[in-house]
């Protein structure tokens, strides 16, 4: 159970020229570990996350989830895979305005063909895990920024994913709330055994990571060896 990118290259058309967003990127994220991906703006962090989320198919290289190569899969297979194996924590919470906090989690189960009622116990358990058991009936506009981000995290874990992809989760939060969110992600990574990738520009969160991958000009410069996987 892990996320593995091998020799991934991604090239975008850029006017008359071509822009290499990812250049021969190899990254291995074992289960129960958190890999922080850092780098300056435009370095390829978001492209790396999009490729890992199977939202973009790379030009060359392979993306494996649970030792299953996703390159060559049909769009429908990728949608199924994303629903069952990948949890995504968006930079903005991206909560649906008409749903309560509890329903934000239930909808993920409904997308997977389960009934909302059947998903209720797990949704409540996850809301409890992120400290929002008392806010289950509130809609996004009734929650604070930090609370919305915690719902975002709980939603990502609803289908018990193998891989958790986290995109700049603290960009809209103050330092203290940001730290609490990162701590929560680390705790859930250990607890749920996910292979977690955390894209961040905030270097203060790096201490929480097991590994640090620095991206520059589409290449992973080096892994910082803080090998602290459990």
């Amino acid at each position: 159970m892990s996320l593995n990118l091998t020799g991934v290259t991604l090239i975008y058309p850029d006017g008359d020229s071509r822009l290499t967003a990812l250049d021969d990127v190899t990254l291995d994220v074992p289960p129960s570990t958190l890999t922080a991906v850092v780098g300056p703006s435009g370095s390829g962090k978001s492209s790396l996350l999009a490729v890992a989320a199977t939202l973009i198919t790379p030009g060359t290289g392979t993306v494996s989830i649970d030792a299953t190569d996703t390159t060559g899969m049909s769009r429908r297979e990728l949608t199924d895979l994303r629903r069952r194996k990948i949890g995504m924590v968006f930079q903005q919470p991206n909560l649906l305005p008409s749903l309560t906090a509890l329903e934000q989690l239930q909808v993920v189960a409904v997308l997977d063909g389960r009934s909302p009622a059947a998903a209720l116990p797990r949704a409540r358990e996850l809301l409890d895990a992120v400290g929002l058991a008392g806010e289950a009936g509130r809609r996004p506009h009734q929650l604070s920024g930090g609370q919305r981000q915690r719902v975002n995290i709980a939603r990502a874990l609803m289908n018990d994913p193998t891989v958790l992809l986290v995109d700049e989760p603290t960009s809209a939060l103050d330092h203290e709330r940001g730290r609490a969110v990162v701590d929560l992600i680390v705790r859930l990574t250990r607890l749920r055994g996910t292979a977690t990738v955390l894209v961040t520009h905030d270097t203060t969160h790096l201490a929480a990571a097991d590994r640090i991958a620095e991206v520059r000009d589409g290449r992973i410069g080096h892994h910082t060896g803080i090998e602290r996987a459990s």
């Binding site: 989320a53 939202l55 429908r76 949608t79 199924d80 994303r82 629903r83 069952r84 990948i86 995504m88 968006f90 991206n94 649906l96 305005p97 909808v107 993920v108 997308l111 997977d112 939603r155 289908n159």
Partner: peptide, 16 residues
């Protein structure tokens, strides 16, 4: 459109 994009990213099929 934004909500639909999120639902698709979460694994919703276009048909659903």
């Amino acid at each position: 459109r934004g909500d639909v994009a999120v639902l698709k990213a979460l694994g919703a099929s276009t048909a659903s």
